[in-house]
Write a protein that binds this DNA or RNA. Structure first.
Lengths: 184, 184
DNA sequence: TACAAACTTTACCAATCAGTACAATTCACG
DNA sequence: CGTGAATTGTACTGATTGGTAAAGTTTGTA
């Protein structure tokens, strides 16, 4: 009937929020339809592959966001200390102090992990590598930098789990402060 | 027709494994039926409340296991250092070096969190409290002990996420070694 | 042997699921 | 205007979902 001035690119952030709240299996097409305001026809027009393609698009969108705002600055900044601090701030903002869940982390724990294994692995491997690069530039030995980076990335995910389990954003904020202190 | 020598107590570990692999929504009654070998009738005989009651029973079973094997020793042992070491070993065994997921953590990230919020909160709050008690007995100040405990519990969950995302149990083992070193 | 409780099988239900088909509509462009 | 492509609404499918009903079978006990 109509043409709602909707573009694929506008829908993806909405899909991301849906997958964050409902998980992959919980995000039924009924929910997606309601929240996006798009009928089945439009949904399958933009994402012929159905839910799987929607999720893939969301994961790509997230990866691009992190690459632009976090990974590349970490790798390329010539003030690594500032880049690490900026990362901590950006992460805290992005996850709303732990009130928002990490879609990629949630997918990793879910039984859909295998279907998106590549994207999930890339997200975390890139993060770890970018952070390790920055840490090396602060004078750490390569092995130690990688170890610290792995620990920090894991700790952020753990803080998200615990903050949500205890229903207490302060848990997340405390964790982020510990992480930043250890990295700088 | 028959009486399969199945008791409720025998079924719960199977259910736990199912929820671990499939998540709450993914664990359909068809899957549960196949894996337990029980028909719908038997399932609803043991768990009149359906899936919700199955999950509740699983969470209770897990909580009891951790209380007996980890929390109580941490709180009551008069060799807190040994109890903390034993905790790290038990956790590493329980999660199969990160190959097995923490059901409670996975539920916390899922959209079913609200339905089991109480059990999820208790699991983590008890863990944190028991570990903090042990840490205090090693001479730490109360505030510092609580902080260390919160960090350790979060780090274990984060290690599970990252090990599964990177598909590398070594990530989990490294994390557990870091955690133990920091606690002792 | 009798009988009640525990347990199991089977068939069923309405709701919801992802996905398809296609006609109706709108847009961009000539 | 007019035309073809892009977009959308609606109705549908077959499979699967969690859950129910009730009849059948086994068990422990007396």
């Amino acid at each position: 009937m109509a043409k709602t001035i909707a573009e694929r690119a506008d829908i993806i952030p909405v899909l991301a929020e849906i997958f964050r709240e409902y998980g992959f299996e919980g995000a039924s097409l009924a929910v997606v339809g309601n929240r996006t305001g798009l009928g089945r026809g439009s949904l399958y027009h933009f994402f012929p592959g159905g839910k799987e393609e929607m999720a893939t698009a969301v994961l790509l969108h997230i990866d691009t966001w992190f690459e632009d705002r976090i990974y590349r600055p970490l790798r390329e900044s010539d003030d690594p200390t500032a880049a690490i601090s900026a990362m901590c701030r950006a992460v805290s903002d992005y996850f709303h102090s732990g009130c928002r869940v990490c879609v990629v982390g949630a997918f990793a724990l879910d039984n859909v992990r295998d279907r998106f294994a590549g994207a999930i692995l890339d997200y975390f491997a890139d993060w770890k590598h970018a952070l390790a690069t920055a840490l090396q530039k602060t004078g750490r030995m390569p092995d130690h930098a990688i170890d610290l980076a792995e620990e920090a990335v894991a700790n952020i995910q753990g803080a998200l789990v615990l903050a949500r389990a205890l229903d207490d954003p302060a848990v997340f904020e405390r964790a982020m402060q510990r992480i930043e202190k250890r990295l700088l």
